[in-house]
Write a protein that binds this DNA or RNA. Sequence first.
RNA 1: GCACGGGUUGGGGAGCGGUCAAACCCGCCAGGCUUAGGACCUGGUCGCUUAGUGCGUUCGGCGGUUCGAGUCCGCCCCCGUGCACCA
Length: 903
Amino acid sequence: MAAKKSSKRTGSAKEKKENAGKAPVAEKKFDFASVEKKWQSEWEKAGVFKTEENSKKPKIYVLEMFPYPSGSGLHMGHTLNYTIGDVFARFKRMNGFNVLYPMGYDAFGLPAENAAIKAGVHPKKYTEESIQTFMKQQKGLGLSYDWSKLLATCNPDYYKWNQYFFLKFFEKGLAYRKKAAVNWCPDCETVLANEQVHSGKCWRHEETDVEIRHLEQWFLKTTSYSDELLECIPKLQWPARIKSIQENWIGKSFGTEILFEINGKKWPIFTTRPDTIFGVTFMVVSAQHPRLNGLVTAAQKREVDDFLRKIKSTSEKDTTELEKEGAFTGSYATNPLTNENVPIYAGNFVVADYGSGMVMAVPAHDQRDFEFAKKYNIPVKVVIQPKGKNISAELIGEAFVDEGVLVNSTKFSGLESKKSIEEITEHLEKIGLGKKTVNYKFRDWLISRQRYWGTPIPVVYCEKCGIVPVPEKDLPVLLPEKVEFGKGNPLLSNKEFVNVKCPKCGGTSRRETDTMDTFFDSSWYFLRYCDNKNSKVPFDKKKIEYWMPVDQYIGGAEHACMHLIYARFFTKALRDLGFVSFDEPFTKLFNQGMLHGSDGHVMSKSRGNIVLPEEVSKKYGIDTARLFLLSQAAPDKDMGWKEEGIEGSLRAVMKIVSYFENPRPGKSSRKIESKIHRAIRNITSDIENFRYNFAIINLRKLFDAIEGEEKVSKEHLEIFLKLLHPICPHITEELWRAIGNKALVASEKWPECDAKLIDENLERIEAAVSSLRLDILRIKELAKLEKVSKVRIFVAQEWKWKALKIIVSVCDGRPDFGAAMKALMADPEIKQHSSEIQPFIKGALSRLGELSMLEKFDEVSVLKEAAPVLEKEFGKIEIMKSEESAEPKARNAFPGKPALIIE
RNA sequence: GCACGGGUUGGGGAGCGGUCAAACCCGCCAGGCUUAGGACCUGGUCGCUUAGUGCGUUCGGCGGUUCGAGUCCGCCCCCGUGCACCA
């Protein structure tokens, strides 16, 4: 099929090429592969993508989220992602910026380890090979990375600094170890951070329920930055969606902490509804609460244990539908304002580590509490009445949760609930039994993992000294290669690694075998790029100060409350440790859309719907693929990959290539000059604002205009190639050379728009020409005229123009028939046409907006310029005033809408 | 349940409250050119019209604001995403 196709693809295009004495492009197709290779190596030779040291240019740091190097390599989805950044980086480079555009690999992680278990390959080998594949593919895409900045997080010269930062955090108390109810994924065989649990499932295993286990683990004190992380969000130039996800994730809520007395001890209870405190009839403590046991009396132990066993077997299923359940603990709490004793239940609907893990239950005014109370026959006490209504505990079928007026609340009765929140809180503060407080959903980041392929946590456990950090001089704690994969943490199988002497006392001690969450690695990699070869310190502060923060970050929205929050935390923590002096790592963030495969699902290896860039490249050339991907939609929108569409992009590329094979150099017309400068202006702002799809439309329009010209100057052709270069880097280099240039487009200066050369009038004339021409042709066809010998164009009578101006000015954007009529009748010249005035005003009022634009140009002069262009084709063209015509249709010519008579 | 996106002409996808029947691409139709081809060129592609730059009807549904609404507001329906028993 293919061979037949290409042999047939000859014809007129071929003849043209042969006349020019050149190889027929269309026939040979175009050797994209060798052109791509050639320019990729030229770029490398010239080092055009290297950042400059001590540059006077303004800096810009363009960064894509670095990939996890999986064995399956890149697909078109990645291609889209990196192309978006590459276009931007090339554009900025040409605009005179010193651009840092690096690439690296998030090389630690579970998939490598799992592959090792499955295929018997060592994770190190697996990862190294994957990285090689990725690099080769990325180079094949023509991405303009400065490869000298390369890093991989699994190299000791990188993870050494993970350990170094860990120790710094440990010193400051930002890294700590505690026993807690943590998330455990039985498939990953490790604990997970809260951010890695999605709706009760593991982020890597959609099918796997996460279990709650009580384990001692390492945490980073991310919560000490909760407030700052939240407060800085409005300042970020990030997509609103990501900002809102982060705000929700941090989940700040204002409320009151009330001290209830339980077994002689004060328990702080967090609530947003202190106004309902007189309605508390019981308390519920989380079934996962670490202090639950202390509340259970001997008599109730059995009941509570039964309950705990029951929820363990059902709790992970259908969290949405879960019925509220619980068991009485046997303990009571004393309400500080009523001195009533209320029973404490253990319940499945209370979160252990939000607030204090126990809630005061007000069944009359909280739906969950209501359901629970009904189930266990606990009294319901109404303390807030809706305005103008009277509800009673016996009759309500659901909790009344809205605002109202307090009742049964001692001296607070009669207050509006909103007001009483303040008053009750104040009262509690006065008597020392409560205070205003804030609560966050955000929790500390659990960073230890019971897996092999990660950064060893630099700590040993000494029998005498307890937790002892590894001294800085002994870093890095190397990850041993010799381990056995299978059950449990492979690191435990290496005795030399595990059994060490205590750095403090020299006594027997055991090395920590947990490794760090890989999100630790990715929380500061953007800093390391700035100084990736430094072996003395994690990075030179001066270099960081020059390059950071990242000006433009590009990546997927799935990292909204994982990587993007961790990196922000890390930056703030490093700032407070004196490593950096800025507050936020990423000034601007762009979320690229997801590429969907032909089955409509997001393109991914596991779905089996991936399209490989190599294959597309081979068929269409990578520039064509880039053009196609970016022209489909705005780059932040999801889009589908469809093979059919790319043919159109190939056509466009081939048209451009053919044109440049046989250019027609000469002096450009004013018209094309105007168009070029308009295009410069538009395309510059399109790329700047990631409106690549519009940039491509403008490029195509510009090319159509160039192609239609008899002659175009070399300078203008060069401008076109420069404008196209960020999107189609390879072919533009090839064509740049073809029209006689030596240097590389990649290092050329971006063209500047000379606004003076944009000629609105000329473009109006052109538009008039083409619309006139079409009208004439259409009329000719409809009238079945053999030939057009004469065209008469009738333009509106002058009084109509005058009247129009009056109407536009009188009405000031708002149709006002009366005012318009009055104004027109006041003008003696217009008054002569009184019979036509009324319909004219109606017409004008109905298109007021359009007409106020029309006012700006002179119909007659535009047509006078337009007509001669068409005379060659249609013979004599006359322009005349409507009143000179006897034809009623022509007489009705409206301003801006000329009438035609053709003979 | 809460929050955020989105529903536009055959498909993809644009659309500062007036210049918008709605960019651009694909598809489709007609014509041209032809070593008759899924190449290239030109035009068309909501309906009705037609010597029109004419009329009508449209932008998930229903209301509202406005002289004027895909465009703003309210409610509803559908699709997608995030969080989810957060007290």
